[in-house]
Amino acid sequence: MARYTGPKTKIARKFGEAIFGEDKSFEKRNYPPGQHGNNRRRGKKSEYAIQLAEKQKAKYTYGILERQFRGLFKKATAATGITGEVLLQLCESRLDNVVYRMGISPSRPGARQLVSHRHITVNGELVNIPSYQLKAGDVVGVREKSKSLDAIQSSLSNNSTVYEWITWNNEKKEGTYVSVPGRVQIPENINEQFIVELYSK
């Protein structure tokens, strides 16, 4: 299964924010990577460079490779609504992302692994496809045999984030994807308009 497995702190430093979640190495060196770090003279970025960086940031944030991301953009273009907003909503509706948002895993790569290793159910059925698109009303749960896993228990006990578009029942270890989130409900610092402009060239 294709996914990015390279150095994460380096990528986070490139974008100037911890896009992969909490990162102690990034906190120590939150300036761009490279031999001269902060002292390097950086010329004004071109419009294309800014748009490309925004697309790369979105891809790394959600753990999606180019081909899949382009496919999501095509879907977003064909759908009704603002293309950039729909694109982010499609990213948020992925099963691995919702597992992460529910707090079942502390990171998206971890959520992706839980899904791939058959620990997650959707409406009572096992689903092992991280890119599975959820619909409003779908119930996402932890498989019965996996409820006692230390990694899941630990993640849930440390999770305090609440999203209006998701409900979670800790006793049953399941939650409902209540509705597609609006743009204001998506906390990611991504300028989706730049991505739309890049792909529209």
Score class of each variant (00 low, 15 high):
T61E: 03
S157V: 12
H119V: 02
G103W: 00
E192L: 04
Y4K: 07
A78Y: 07
V122L: 06
C91L: 13
P106V: 05
K45A: 15
R143F: 03
E54F: 08
Q133S: 08
V184L: 10
V115L: 04
Y31P: 07
K135H: 13
S105E: 08
G43W: 01
R42F: 05
V184F: 07
G110Y: 10
A53S: 15
A2E: 12
V142N: 06
I152Q: 03
K135Y: 11
R41N: 14
S155V: 04
E144Q: 13
G182D: 12
N38S: 15
L149D: 10
N191V: 11
P33T: 12
G103P: 02
I152T: 08
L126F: 09
Q51C: 06
A79G: 04
T5D: 13
G43R: 08
G63T: 00
G71K: 15
V139E: 07
G6H: 12
L72C: 01
I186C: 06
Q133V: 04
P109K: 05
S146E: 10
L198V: 03
A151D: 11
L52H: 10
K57D: 04
S25I: 11
W165G: 00
I195T: 06
Y62Q: 03
I152L: 10
I186N: 03
T83D: 03
L87Y: 07
S46V: 12
V115K: 00
E197N: 15
I50Y: 08
K135L: 12
G182Y: 06
Q113Y: 06
V142R: 02
S146T: 11
Q89V: 08
S148A: 15
I120K: 03
W168T: 07
F69W: 10
K24L: 15
V115A: 04
A12H: 06
K24W: 03
L95Q: 02
G43S: 14
S105T: 07
K14Y: 13
A79N: 13
T61K: 02
G34Q: 09
S105C: 13
G141R: 00
A49F: 10
K147F: 05
L87I: 05
L90W: 10
V140G: 04
G43K: 10
K173Y: 06
V86W: 04
G137E: 09
I11C: 05
K75T: 03
G37M: 05
I82G: 01
T161E: 13
V162F: 12
V184I: 14
V139H: 01
R112C: 05
K172C: 11
E144R: 07
L134Y: 00
K28E: 15
P187I: 05
T83I: 13
Q35D: 09
P181K: 08
R40P: 04
K135V: 09
T121E: 12
A136H: 12
Q89H: 13
E188H: 12
L52F: 14
V86E: 02
